[in-house]
Computed example of a mutant assay.
Amino acid sequence: MNTDDLSSAARRHRDGDRDRVSGELFRRVMGVVCTPVSVVTTCADARPYGTTVSAFSALSLEPPMVLVALDRGSSLLSVLRRTRRFGLNVLSADQGDLATRFARKGADKFEGVRWRNDSELPRLAGVTGWLACEVTRFVDGGDHLVAMGSVVSADCQDAAPLTYHRRGYGTHRVLTASR
């Protein structure tokens, strides 16, 4: 690590009576974390909605639950608050174009995209994982709102996942065989 990295890592700012990590440093640290890329979908008034997320996680095995974090300004979030149902489409390694498409603002995200109705939610074609969820709770998460979802349907394919790392898409590969 060079001295620029050290001084950058030490950057903090005052917030009231406590020190906090700067947003710049936090983004930099989170940039080295490899995260799965998914598109969260819902349907309202016979129209599909979706947005790309990298902040989702398994929450519980019994009962099966996941959580997704959505920006408070997300148009999908406003619809999800009404529908209280969402699909989690875990993208496969060759679906970077879909991740980019659904990350944009706008109403035409589904135009030309192959998808089907699964459990009354939009399921994108070719995804490596699929979960249909019912929102059990919304939790405050700073500039995001966390939707906790109870899984009501699931499916997966044998395909490498799309991941996000250092502002770019990639995938995962096993380095050594586990026993």
Rank of each mutant, 00 (worst) to 15 (best):
V33R: 13
D17Q: 12
S119R: 12
Y169S: 06
E111M: 04
P122S: 10
R27S: 11
C156P: 00
Y164L: 13
Y164P: 12
V127I: 10
G31R: 05
A44L: 13
S54V: 15
V21Q: 10
S150V: 05
F102H: 12
C43I: 14
D19F: 04
A177L: 01
K105P: 07
D45W: 07
E24Y: 11
V139E: 09
L98E: 08
R14E: 07
L76V: 10
M30W: 11
R114L: 15
C156Y: 02
K105L: 13
T83S: 08
R27C: 03
F102P: 12
V79T: 09
L67F: 12
R101Y: 09
F56Y: 15
T163A: 11
G50D: 03
W115R: 04
V127R: 00
H144C: 03
T100E: 13
H144R: 09
T128D: 02
T163M: 09
V151F: 06
L124T: 12
M1I: 14
S74P: 03
V79H: 00
A159Y: 00
L162W: 02
F102W: 13
V127E: 01
R47M: 07
F86P: 00
L175P: 02
Q157H: 09
M1S: 15
L76Q: 00
G23E: 12
S60I: 06
A99I: 02
P36C: 15
W130V: 06
R47E: 06
C43E: 13
R101S: 06
D45S: 12
P48E: 09
A10R: 15
G106E: 15
R85G: 01
L162Y: 06
G129D: 01
A132N: 06
A69R: 07
L98D: 10
G112R: 06
F86M: 03
G87P: 04
L131K: 01
M1W: 11
D17Y: 03
S153A: 14
R137F: 03
G31P: 07
D15K: 13
T171R: 02
L6M: 14
Q157K: 12
G23A: 14
G170H: 07
N117T: 10
V40F: 06
T42A: 08
E134V: 15
S92E: 00
K105F: 08
Y164N: 09
L80E: 02
F56N: 09
A103K: 06
L59Q: 12
D94W: 04
R123N: 11
G170P: 11
V53T: 14
V113L: 14
S150I: 01
V152D: 02
L77N: 02
V21H: 08
V139A: 05
L145N: 00
R137T: 14
L145V: 11
A159V: 03
E24F: 12
P64H: 08
E134G: 05
P64N: 13
V152M: 01
R14A: 08
G96D: 06
Q95F: 03
G142R: 09
A154I: 10
E62P: 01
L6C: 11
V68M: 06
W115M: 03
A154S: 11
R14V: 04
V68S: 06
P161T: 02
D155E: 09
R20E: 09
S78W: 02
L59F: 13
Q157L: 09
M148Y: 14
S119H: 09
E111Y: 04
G126M: 04
H165L: 13
S153T: 08
S78R: 11
T136R: 07
V32T: 10
A107C: 14
A125L: 08
G73V: 03
R173Y: 13
D15R: 13
S54C: 15
D17P: 01
T52V: 04
